[in-house]
Structures are given as C-alpha cells and as structure tokens.
C-alpha cells in the first residue's frame, strides 16, 4: 500500500519485456493459450483442420503422382531396349549365331531372339489383327533381336552410338531405339505439373478464406472479451496475437494432416501399382514425398494459416476508436 503514494505521478510500468527469455516465454504462453482454446473445441477445430488438410492434400497428391510418373518415365528411358530388325534373308539359324555373337558384346546385357512366328502369334493376340493375319499366305515378319544394353550405355548418346554400331552389321536391316514416345509422355507430364501449380494456387486461396473466416467467427464470439481487454489497457497487438497464433496452429495442423493424407494415399495405391508392375515384369516402388516437398507443405500451410488470420484480424479487429 505504501507504494501507492509514490506511484501517483509516476507512469505505470509499460515496457516489461526487457529480457528475451521473458519475451519468449510470453509468446510461448500465448501460443499454448491459443492451442488450448482450439483443443477445447475438438470437433470444430478438427473440421476446420480437415478442410485445410484436404485442400492442401489435393495439389500435394497430384504433385506426388506426377513425380512418380516422371520417375517411371525416366526408368522407361533407362530400360529401353534396342530392337534390331534383321534383313528378310537372314534365317533363324543365322540369327541365333548372331545372337550368340552379340551376347559377348561388352555393352550388351541380354539378347533375346524373337522369331517371326513368335512375333506373329503375339500380334494375333491383339484385337483386329488376328483376322488380318489369317489372310497372310506367309509370315512377312523378319527376325528381331531385342538388345538390352548394360547400365553404362543407358545415357541417350551412348545408346544412339550403340544402335548405329549394331545397325552396321551385315545381317541387320535397321535398329530402332524407341525413346520418342517417352519424350512425348514427359512433355504431357510437364503440362500436368503446370496444372498442379495452378490448382495449388487456387486451393491456397481457399485455405486463406477458410482460416480467415474461422478467425472472423472467433473474433465475433469474443467481442465482449476484446472490448474488456481494450478497457483495461491491452494494446491492439496484444489483442491480435492470440488470433494470429490460432491461425498458425490451424495452418500447421492442416499441413500435418495434408502430409498424412498424401502419405496414406500413396501407401494405399502401392499394392495395386506393385501388382501392375509385376504384370510388366518390373518393380515400381512409389516414391513418397521428398524432404523438400514435405517441408514445403508444412511451411506453406503454416504460412497460409498465419496470413489468413493476419488478414482477418486486420479487417475485423481494427483498434477501437473512442467516438
């Protein structure tokens, strides 16, 4: 009580945050306060978080999909075999001899001989072909050697060179290196990736609106409290801070939710993809979200949450003006 007399003409202590530790613990306290408030209403909070998570998971999973298709097309590029078509007058025996010879080539892993009969029956398996094939009097197909290069020559230029080399053989008619369609596929993928970016932008805006609107409702619900805080001398920054943290939490939880959704989705389609790959005698383990993509999702979502609440607080919490 004695302190009162001295305090009469003295300004009330105004800047108590001299120590960084105090400042930090204060912010931690506000952040935890906002978190506690969110957890107090688990259903409402969960709903908002789910909306954010889904909105972010959409472009993120599309991104994961195109990334896997990209990896797939690269692996196709790598496993491309050279189809060496032999001249029509090379018979099967000569072809076998050539195959043995080529197997010794240091740049070739495997050499598979596809006889004209084999090729024809395979073609007959396709709809529409079988009828046409029965019309044929004799098999017009040449012997084909499917060449599987060693990993060292899987770069395009080396492949090209190898193809030229085998094409120069006397028994060879021509060699076909089928990489053009892979390039086309990649061009389509590039377009899709552009689409992912656009979709991401639109859904980022949706997240901003969701967070902004949620914060607006929160502000409306707490008008009375805000007014009282103002009356006892709280600064606008002090009043805004819990709302900003609330937005940050929404963003962070939404981001974590989105990451989990994408990871779960990839895990769920891994089974069917593996079975599909097995049909083609390959393996295709789906790539998950890489570290940078994961951090982008979390950081981006957190940023959107903060930005959404910042905009909302700016619009709906203008400092009360005495009138």
């Amino acid at each position: 009580m004695r302190a009162h007399r001295r305090s009469v003409h003295r300004r009330v202590r105004v800047h108590p945050f001299h120590l960084p530790a105090t400042w930090l613990s204060y912010h931690l306290q506000v952040a935890l306060g906002s978190l506690g408030r969110l957890l107090h209403n688990p259903w409402a909070t969960g709903m908002t978080v789910a909306v954010i998570a889904i909105a972010i998971a959409l472009p993120a999973s599309l991104y994961a999909l195109t990334r896997n298709l990209n990896l797939l097309s690269e692996s196709w590029g790598q496993t491309t075999a050279i189809s060496l078509f032999l001249t029509p007058d090379t018979d099967i025996e000569q072809a076998r001899a050539l195959a043995v010879e080529l197997r010794a080539h240091r740049n070739l892993d495997q050499v598979t001989l596809i006889s004209p009969d084999q090729a024809l029956s395979e073609l007959g398996g396709y709809d529409g072909f079988s009828e046409a094939i029965t019309q044929l009097e004799e098999n017009p197909l040449p012997v084909v050697l499917a060449l599987q290069p060693t990993p060292e020559v899987r770069i395009p230029e080396a492949l090209e060179r190898l193809a030229k080399e085998v094409e120069a053989l006397p028994q060879a008619d021509f060699a076909r290196l089928d990489t053009r369609w892979v390039r086309r596929f990649q061009a389509i993928l590039n377009v899709t990736q552009r689409g992912v970016v656009l979709l991401g932008g639109a859904l980022a805006l949706a997240v901003l609106l969701v967070v902004g609107n949620t914060i607006r409702l929160e502000i409306e619900n707490r008008r009375n409290e805000i007014e009282i805080m103002e009356l006892v001398g709280a600064t606008p920054a002090f009043i805004r801070r819990p709302f900003l943290y609330t937005g940050g939490w929404y963003g962070l939880f939404g981001g974590i939710g989105a990451w989990l959704l994408v990871t779960l989705a990839l895990a769920l389609i891994q089974g069917p993809v593996s079975r599909l790959a097995a049909l083609y005698h390959t393996q295709f383990p789906l790539a998950g979200l890489e570290a940078t993509a994961s951090l982008t999702i979390l950081g981006g979502s957190l940023g959107l949450g903060l930005l959404g609440s910042w905009v909302s607080v700016g619009r709906h919490l203008s400092a009360a003006q005495p009138h």
């Binding site: 105004v14 006892v232 600064t235």
Partner: peptide, 14 residues
C-alpha cells in the same frame, strides 16, 4: 494519439 490510448487506460482504474 490512438496508439497511446492503452497506456492511458492503464493509468485509470475503471
């Protein structure tokens, strides 16, 4: 100024 209102209110117990 508006930004000083909170400081003013801290000096007035209502």
């Amino acid at each position: 100024p508006t930004r000083k209102i909170p400081l003013h209110r801290r000096e007035v117990g209502m």
